[in-house]
Design a protein around this nucleic acid. Sequence first.
DNA 1: ATTTCAGGATTGTTCAACAATAGGACGAGA
DNA 2: TCTCGTCCTATTGTTGAACAATCCTGAAAT
Lengths: 236, 236
Amino acid sequence: MTVAQDGVERLAGDRAELERPPSTAELVAEALRGQIIDGALAPGTRLSEKELFTRLGVSRNTLREAFLLLVHERLLVRRPHHGVSVAKPTVADVIDLYRVRRALELSAVRAAAQAPPGALDAVGAAVREGERAAAAADWKALGTANMRFHAAIAGLTGSQRVAEVMRQLLAEMRLVFHVMAAPREFHEPYLAMNREIHLLLRDGAAERAAERLADYLDVAERQLVDAFAAREADTR
Amino acid sequence: MTVAQDGVERLAGDRAELERPPSTAELVAEALRGQIIDGALAPGTRLSEKELFTRLGVSRNTLREAFLLLVHERLLVRRPHHGVSVAKPTVADVIDLYRVRRALELSAVRAAAQAPPGALDAVGAAVREGERAAAAADWKALGTANMRFHAAIAGLTGSQRVAEVMRQLLAEMRLVFHVMAAPREFHEPYLAMNREIHLLLRDGAAERAAERLADYLDVAERQLVDAFAAREADTR
DNA sequence: ATTTCAGGATTGTTCAACAATAGGACGAGA
DNA sequence: TCTCGTCCTATTGTTGAACAATCCTGAAAT
């Protein structure tokens, strides 16, 4: 193999990462997704087609295509002839989400020994990112770092599909978190757990890391379920 | 509670199952999905928009909406400005699919004790359906029954999201199975394993059922990976 | 106060046109 | 004969507009 062929090989390898310019619908979906997980669009908000496509400067068809993408991600729900609205997760959704998270994340941690190179570093990077955010008292960034931590956990599998499912679940989680009035009190305690899990993984103690993560998920789920129960008792 | 109210309750309960007439795009997607998993549309086939929407008698926008649904299910892949084509799974996809299946199905089996009522019966029904198909030498139906078995396993979680992810994975699996020339030899041996797993679950031996299922998945994956390797060596 | 019915508004679906892009055809030059 | 660059065509991406179907609102009638 010559040096020139080597260069061609590398280009072919990069080809997959060379992202094409996203379509208009994807851009619109991304914009809406950002507003939804930022909380600018509260759960339950009805999204009028007419208002949105005039405001965003895209065609109605393109907007509807973006809606389709987000409905698939469960960030929007569509009621026929009523249009779409921002999803409003229920306590049943919380339980459901944590069931899937347990299956995927615990399986990922237990298989950490076969993780692709660099995957564990991503976990560590997410931990450090969270600590920086906490030090800067940036609670929104702390929540993001926490999401990234769990995405990195899923990344330990090296599986494209696991990563994608996880990405979707975490986007939904952002919606769920909106019921937590105090992001600091909610997210901060998990920083230490994240760090501990990362250290256990680094030392090859996968099973113990899995146990810690299981506790972690149990606690978080309980906390969210309680918050939902309180809110539902409140609004009724 | 009066009898009349009872009737209303029942109507409200049925309301969720009362499926609205599916939209045109969903019908088109369903038709295409059927042709893909039946093998009428071989992996790699390019789908021309013009030809399809004239043949199906729907608008181009509706067809594109159906494409979006199937792209999301990974049954179609879209190359910008090139249109969509039937997905052609690689050996990497097979490995990836089985990783997710292991995580979800094993977790479902281990939690079988908390399964919702009737979920275990669905597993048994799938086993019997497979045995009927084998007795009738209907190998296509046998493959379908096998899919239903694994869907029922996922259903043990009672989780909407697990069920949906599983449904998607199984649709992809249909695509993968196309490389197996002999559906009988491939699917038939798993009948006994399905029955054994069902019996173990019925007896409450969830952990042993999980071990059997893990073996099952290992064998099937290896068989498919070998088949892919043979095909790739063949076509090159 | 309850019911009925008409009006308006919004969404579902289709059609038609233009812009943008990828791939192939074609020819010039070495 | 082979390589390179240019143009051209077919297909897709995007937009705009129209009509049909459905739901919500509110006024009129009992």
